[in-house]
């Protein structure tokens, strides 16, 4: 009985949507620890371009990832709208620099499509789907894949 009901009610998910360049991205709300303003980043020498550096988040050291570089997007300027989305997978905490945060979105399953159907970009491993809202397309990030460090 209960299972039958579940089929009828569509699962929905809550996302935090943010802007990178002229694209809108989304990260499921559960994996986000907090969103902070950009602060002074301490560089860690010898690390690749995707690693911006580290910040002091209330006594904890949190690495900052340049999400634009990570996703292969062109370089962007920091503005007063720039934010750091701090995500955590329980083990690691990483801050992702984004251009601006739009807000919380609610998407139901039927609004989400597999990435390959719409985009044919080279690296799709970081994307787990595309959400369609009335006025925009939201690229849903595969957070574990983005956080995973490439083997150097």
């Amino acid at each position: 009985m209960a299972e039958a009901c579940l089929d009828v009610i569509e699962r929905d998910e809550q996302l935090v949507a943010f802007q990178l360049g002229d694209e809108t991205y989304g990260i499921e709300i559960a994996s986000i620890q907090e969103i902070i303003r950009l602060q002074e980043v301490t560089q860690v020498p010898g690390k690749g371009d995707e690693m911006e550096g580290i910040i002091n988040l209330r006594g904890k050291i949190v690495p900052i990832m340049n999400l634009r570089r990570r996703l292969g997007l062109p370089h962007g300027e920091r503005t007063s709208q720039s934010r750091v989305v701090v995500v955590s997978d329980g083990e690691c905490t990483v801050g992702m620099e984004v251009d601006s945060v739009i807000g919380v979105l609610k998407l139901v399953d039927s609004q989400i499509e597999k990435p390959s159907q719409i985009m044919s970009n080279n690296d799709m491993s970081h994307v787990r789907g595309v959400g369609k809202t009335d006025d925009a397309l939201v690229i849903l990030l595969n957070v574990p894949a983005v956080m995973r460090r490439d083997q150097e």
Binding site: T42, V44, K47, M51, I54, I61, P63, C92, R149, E152
Partner: peptide
């Protein structure tokens, strides 16, 4: 001493980072 964390990984010549009195960080 605070580790740089798994995400940053090992950095040659560095053993971690620390937070200084002014809130800034030192490697």
């Amino acid at each position: 001493i605070k580790t740089l964390g798994k995400f940053v990984g090992d950095v040659h010549g560095l053993s971690g980072a620390t937070i200084m009195g002014d809130g800034r960080m030192a490697l």
